[in-house]
Design a protein around this nucleic acid. Structure first.
Lengths: 342, 342
DNA sequence: CATTAGCACTCTCTGGCAGAGAGTGCTAAC
DNA sequence: GTTAGCACTCTCTGCCAGAGAGTGCTAATG
């Protein structure tokens, strides 16, 4: 419902502001972009856009700055994604190329690369331990005294721990115990392994075979703790590059939040769409994020969220580039993880 | 060789500066501490200390500020460690209490707690993968297609990976291969697993049994990468609380460095003493750290460094408290890890 | 002879003020 | 409908004066 001319002006203004971080005036706009109309005309249009809520004035005699509504409109119907350069794409895919055992490492590198390419802060949330599905329990004797307990899930993830073998338990018995657990628990999501369920299981064993109790107790603690331990963060210092964060107070507030893993989780937890979602300024749940935007996408296999990635920056973020980066990374990660997770 | 009075003045001045972060004048010193002498006398003494290099003047008519030499003297022979409160000690030990499977988690929590208690930045470097000693290789078949490769070291650490079983290799054969590897490599530190050594081993196998090649190649890559992946960092935002870091440029420089894992490693790599070491300002290798100090301690078992912990803050750091915190944490961590690592 | 009071001097910091610069809204002309 | 012109507003910068804090030096003191 905006006239074509208003759209052109709005687009030019926002692009300019994203680039230079300074309020844009009518004169500047006329000079820098070949709009074919005079500053005075632009002024009139800008006054309209201001009244409609797309633009704001920091003070009476400054240029205009996009409002939240302005950004929203820009993102939804003005902007077109800006392709990454081949070098940038390479930087992103290269970060995933090393096939490493630890999935942690994959995410860590990915997040680093994403922050470097986007020039903002990157967030990656890996799969939640509790959503993994129990597949096998293995007891691998190390020597006569100790046995290694292995818990293998559908994604190949292993929970391992060395445990003392109770006196008089033979290798055959260990094997039997492992088989029993495997049989009983196969297919159960780890988050369903409550202590009451385990208690039931234990009643099936003779007293001396309860040495796994501690292992499972730990596992449950792990599950509870895990919620906060699977977020990878990269490029925090990128925040400091932008003039809107020249204020120490703001920086401290935001960086402080970013140290809280629970906060990071809650930022990404809601994202479920595989499409790219953009949350701008006021749309955020947190006051401290009022001047930030976040671009996210997530990925699921069989109803279980495998990962969510996001890029966080000031509202004055280069959405066109960031969207491309997130999109590219999303695809790359999916391909990589499809191989690692079976 | 400093007179008792000079020592008293120096101590009072540095303590005051550490607390308030502002140049201390003779009047202030006389007023705040009951030294029993007049400002004029203090002025004379301060002039001496200035000339001797223990104090500095930001400008002609400001109070004095400790120089690097002043801090050094303070730390070595004036300061006495300030006991932590029971609450603080509890906070530290509690962070280690949860016996969790992943050693990662232990370090992560420890570093968080240490930064909270110290109010500065904490660094913890965990054990280096390459120093672990090969103990066993295990091949645990998951189903007819895949086998889980387990590498167990002396500290119980496991490198695991799911690998496809080459067609026609029986379970018995897998077992045989695992035994052979175990026999040949037992006792070898992982860092000695070079590709040439492995090449030699491979020649002993028939062609179809080389499916472990990829696993070891990954392991070697991991080893190389690991150097940088075992540093845990906590409390970065604490940096921003201190007035010496009101300058954005400084903050960006330092936070940028702290994002580089190689940098963090190099900070801690040299520390070998189990005693507490204090590195002050200029003593640091890095220019960016000229205004920072770091308090470190490390811990070894059988000649292998198990961990190094450190607290990093401005030169105007509350050394008395930090030393206590590092000392306490060092002991706690040793106790905890002695249990986990066998 | 060490200590101290007094004093002139130095340097920073703060607030007020003027002028430059950038941008606006309004009006009148095209 | 578009544009040129103009008065007006607001910020930013640099400058200056006065306050405040601290120093070094000198001379008096116990």
């Amino acid at each position: 419902m905006l006239s074509e001319r208003k759209r052109t002006i709005l687009k030019a203004l926002i692009s300019d502001y994203i680039q230079r971080a300074e309020p844009v005036g009518s004169r500047t706009l006329a000079r820098r972009y070949n709009l074919g109309i005079s500053p005075a005309t632009i002024r009139n249009e800008m006054a309209d856009l201001d009244e409609m809520g797309y633009l704001e004035q920091p003070h009476t005699s400054a240029g205009r700055v996009p409002s939240y509504k302005g950004y929203r409109y820009f993102v939804d119907s003005l902007m077109q994604a800006e392709k990454l350069t081949p070098q940038e794409e390479q930087r992103l895919s290269k970060s995933l190329q090393q096939r490493l055992a630890k999935i942690d490492t994959v995410f860590y590198r990915a997040s680093r690369a994403l922050s470097e390419v986007s020039h903002y802060i990157s967030l990656i949330m890996g799969p939640f331990l509790g959503q993994q599905i129990f597949r096998q329990l293995r007891l691998v004797p190390l020597d006569s005294q100790y046995v290694m307990v292995l818990l293998i899930t559908d994604t190949g993830l292993v929970q391992n721990r060395i445990v003392e073998i109770p006196a008089g338990v033979s290798a055959a018995e260990l094997d039997q115990i492992a088989r029993l657990f495997t049989k009983l628990l196969a297919g159960v999501p780890l988050e369903d392994l409550t202590s009451s369920l385990l208690q039931e299981l234990y009643t099936m064993f003779s007293r001396r075979n309860r040495f796994l109790q501690e292992f499972f107790a730990d596992l449950i603690t792990n599950l509870a703790a895990d919620e906060g331990e699977r977020v990878y963060l990269g490029g925090t210092t990128n925040l400091l590059k932008h003039p809107e964060f020249n204020d120490m107070e703001k920086v401290r507030g935001l960086l402080g939040l970013l140290e809280e893993r629970e906060f990071l989780c809650s930022l990404l937890a809601d994202v479920t769409s595989e499409d790219i979602e953009i949350t701008i300024g006021e749309e955020n749940k947190y006051v401290e994020m009022k001047e930030c935007s976040i671009v996210t996408a997530s990925y699921e296999i069989g109803g279980r969220k495998v990962y969510t990635i996001g890029v966080l920056g000031p509202t004055r973020m280069d959405y066109a580039r960031v969207v491309s980066a997130v999109d590219f990374m999303r695809k790359q990660l999916s391909d990589t993880l499809r191989e690692i997770i079976r």
